[in-house]
Design a protein around this nucleic acid. Structure first.
Lengths: 193, 193
DNA sequence: CTTCTAATTAGATACAAATTGAAATAGAAG
DNA sequence: CTTCTATTTCAATTTGTATCTAATTAGAAG
């Protein structure tokens, strides 16, 4: 389900999210009504009813049968049923929002805490610290072993407190240490908890 | 389905008839999100997201799982499914509007053309004339035979043109005539066409 | 206890939609 | 052709809702 269908679905909900229109759908499910009759039943003026009917008509929810001056409207059950199926197949709901960028939040955290290559401060909350550390560890190359002095130097390019950040990287197992040598771990090995 | 359920249904449509909320439902169908994350993903401020979530929450469309300061929300598929069933069973839709008075239009026609017991004018359109004649024939008693002079007299209480009205009553077979005597027909015998 | 973080609530503003009276249109009737 | 009726279109008003900033609450961490 793509963005087009999302907009269609949205228009459908907007159409039925109105007391007068929802009542009209209920009435028209029973039998045909003219604009005049609907206006009387719903206590509205004809122009108002006509406006609502045009909205339902655009979505093919109602059908029009002209007879002289009178326009008879009735519900198109088939159209209603089609929308039903496409809406409430819960498997598809998740696909509605393909256009929402999945990592927007992480990019926002980065842009909040970074000033160019410089880390303005270390986030206090674990969730955000995680995002920053992911970025920080990407400054190291995979498959390369670094002596501690080298690690500190790289971190200091971005923030003065290299001790804390190094400890955090180890804690989340983004960086691994053995015999005073450090190397970057693949993402699968990181531990959030 | 009574008026309460109608209002619930209406609130449901209103809840989903909003681009931000519909996207949220789509996202939350996939996994849990915090308010902060949703705000970033949808490019909204946290208070706005909070407001939308409260609307979805009132309808039990989403569930809240607090964890420290973070509030994790996710979709309640069950609730969504329940609404689905109650909505699109088209047999029930007609019942939604029990509260709409079925004869509101006819009563309006009567009040437009009557001034007390007096008929202000004879409606030109067939639909409305039918309503007026139904009322007029109710002035006669069932099972009683009236001579023409008597019929005219009764009609003249409401409108001077008793000839036209008498002819119309006969035409629609609301009144029956034989050998100069008239009597009222039961409603089943009337002919609209 | 104080500080910080995430979420909610309150108040204000701006945008979108519902409703209506008046005017225009299309068809029926005289 | 003119008149009348039902509907629709148009313009203007009102109502309602989404969104924001600022202030408040509840929980965590120092």
């Amino acid at each position: 389900m793509g963005p087009d269908e999302f907009q269609t679905l949205l228009r459908f909900f907007k159409a039925l999210a109105n007391e007068s229109r929802l009542k009209m759908v209920g009435l028209l499910a029973g039998r045909e009504y003219s604009v005049e009759e609907l206006a009387a039943l719903l206590q509205l003026k004809e122009p108002t009813v006509s406006h609502h009917l045009s909205i339902l008509k655009e979505l093919n929810l109602v059908q029009l049968r002209p007879e002289g001056n009178t326009h008879w409207y009735q519900l198109d059950r088939e159209a209603l049923h089609n929308v039903n199926r496409s809406v409430f197949d819960t498997e598809q709901i998740a696909g509605l929002v393909k256009d929402v960028e999945a990592d927007a939040w992480e990019r926002q955290v980065l842009s909040n805490f970074l000033s160019g290559e410089r880390l303005k401060e270390i986030p206090a909350s674990r969730k955000k610290r995680w995002v920053i550390l992911k970025w920080l560890v990407s400054q190291f190359d995979l498959g390369v072993t670094y002596p501690e002095a080298n690690v500190n130097e790289i971190i200091k390019r971005h923030h003065p407190d290299c001790a804390t950040l190094r400890r955090e990287l180890i804690g989340y197992q983004m960086l691994q240490r053995e015999h005073g040598l450090y190397w970057r771990q693949p993402e699968a090995e990181w531990k959030f908890a």
